[in-house]
Design a protein around this nucleic acid. Structure first.
Lengths: 340, 340
DNA sequence: CGCCTCATGGCAATCGGTTGCGATATGGAA
DNA sequence: TTCCATATCGCAACCGATTGCCATGAGGCG
């Protein structure tokens, strides 16, 4: 009548899953043999391996991930740190990373790093020791915080360069060139760049590229901001944008562009008649607005995929293959037109 | 000149983090004392505990999660399974779950269960043994698959009821009542419900509620579908909707409603003039469309939060507090008006 | 026929904690 | 002063794997 000790919480009537010891006993073998048969194909006689695999299947054996990672130090888990889970920019990114992880036999752990202070004693503190590496897509983190993270685990950055850390950065230049070309062709001679947060590497990068291409085209260029990279950021920038007298605006991201769009509508400013607006990323919802947003599409899903693969390669001690460029391109919709 | 063995991947020049053994040696104590001092406050003499905590801080001790979970069987990780990471319905849900986990000292692992076949030998297979419990927000899973999962770990469902499994389901009735009232007040006498996938419990539930309230109001009611719960699903349903002659449509979710909206626009059907359209959930983007979508808002963030808290309570052996109702309410925007 | 090699499988240490139980002070009561 | 209860800490087993090294036996070769 001895009651089975149920470890941890409710649902006590759950049979603890089989271990390699169960298999070993069943077959009168040593646990080490079972371990090898299951992980190092060929190390054990083919016949024995067969028997072991069959027994494992029969007993419903699932290796205990914790037990495995204790001696090896590898958890086969990867972290993905984003600054804001509800930001639609990350959706395709998460999807790409998730798929790659799944294909490579890894598990993806998603974390949010809203305030930078959270780095200490927060989610990241719990995350870092549990993963083999992290993909950082958190624009809000300071450079030295990133170095700090990189000191304790392998890191791959997305949309950002910090020191020599490996990074996946889509080739902005293509897209920006196309965007400026698009606007110039429409007849615009002046353009404003609506910057995101000052800390954002990507915001600065995009601003820089827009600047370069604009002046190369002989266009007037101004930069407005910095602002928060969301709807309200875009919304609140309208007065400054309007005051600048530019006929076209390129916002740091789609969220800001959409915010600006809405503010224009509220103020009775015609888009694209009075003002052409473009964004970056082509997030979900960019084609839902009226007018639908013209934007520079970023291959975020591919970036997520590439980041994970690069990370896993480094973990395996392989020099990560030089990632192919990840080109960007513009998606022309309705928010851009000839100025009048 | 003995080279330090770097376990696992690159970045070999990383100092392995301190263990309780390091602390014990430093203080000439036993590891077990260190362990207790750190986890069972009061179990050890206050003075000793102080010394241990100080030493731990000094050495930068971070407990090894794998090592801890091996004897205890608990990983302090929770899984969140959704059917589609890129579906904006889940964003607020993820956010809510993430925050709750963080507050409770748990780590959230996000997983996608697109095809049901993936249940075997897929992401879930790797996830399940690694977490203490899962929150299931995956409408695509079959009932018996859910039971199968529940057999091996603790489970909390969101937006769905299966057997006696604990579930967080917002109170649809409020919202639907308000919706029907809204439409009736506008003068509508007929209404169509655009159903999602047949397998979706929530789709059936919403349809049922709409049906009840519509007939209670003496309205004509038809159900159209089932369809895929996304933009194309809504888009492709336009002809059937139109053919039905109803003056108002309530779609299973906002994605479908928006798809329908777009199709209407493409076909020159005036919304809300010719047709009033409503959705469910109030996802990101629902207020971006033209006309902006009137919808029944679901408190998804609170649902995520509640699910996690309920799950953790069960894990702690506490009877989860009866969750407060999670009411729904309509958000009136521009896609509904009096029929003509 | 003898020796060497290689394939095969077992032993035992190890990863970093947790925890039941026992040993040793320590202080208070009698 | 003696005895006992209690507070404090250590011993050692255990969680479920991995892995270096060794023992055994079989087969190949001269």
């Amino acid at each position: 009548m001895s009651e089975q000790l149920s470890r941890g919480g409710a649902n006590g009537n759950r049979k603890p899953s089989a271990t390699i010891y169960d298999i070993a006993r069943e077959l009168e073998l040593s646990p080490s043999t079972v371990s090898r048969a299951l992980n190092k194909p060929g190390r054990i006689a083919a016949k024995t391996e067969r028997r072991i695999r069959d027994a494992a299947a029969k007993l419903g054996y699932r290796g205990n991930p914790m037990a495995r990672s204790l001696p090896t130090g590898r958890t086969r888990m990867l972290g993905l740190v984003v600054s804001d889970v509800t930001n639609p920019v990350f959706f395709r990114l998460v999807r790409g990373a998730e798929k790659a992880c799944s294909e490579l036999g890894y598990t993806l752990v998603l974390a949010e790093s809203q305030e930078s202070g959270e780095l200490e004693y927060g989610t990241l503190d719990r995350l870092l020791p549990a993963v083999d590496g992290v993909v950082l897509a958190a624009a809000r983190l300071e450079d030295d915080q990133i170095h700090q993270i990189a000191a304790s685990t392998d890191v791959v950055l997305i949309n950002r360069r910090v020191g020599e850390l490996s990074a996946i950065v889509p080739d902005i230049d293509d897209g920006v060139a196309q965007a400026i070309d698009h606007l110039a062709t429409l007849g615009h001679t002046s353009i404003a760049y609506l910057a995101g947060p000052a800390i954002s590497w990507m915001s600065r990068e995009r601003g820089e590229r827009v600047f370069e291409h604009a002046v190369a085209r002989g266009m007037i260029f101004v930069e407005i901001g910095p602002t928060s990279p969301d709807l309200v950021g875009g919304q609140s920038a309208l007065r400054r944008v309007h005051a600048s007298g530019m006929s076209a605006v390129l916002a740091y991201n789609d969220l800001m562009a959409i915010g600006l769009l809405r503010a224009c509508r509220a103020e009775g400013i015609d888009v694209p008649g009075d003002l052409s607006i473009m964004g970056f990323d082509d997030i979900f919802g960019a084609d839902l607005t009226t007018p639908a947003l013209t934007t520079v599409r970023s291959p975020l899903d591919r970036a997520g995929d590439a980041a994970v693969r690069s990370l896993v390669a480094t973990l395996d001690g392989i020099e990560p293959a030089a990632a192919d460029p990840l080109p960007t391109e513009i998606v022309v919709r309705e928010s851009t037109a000839a100025p009048h």
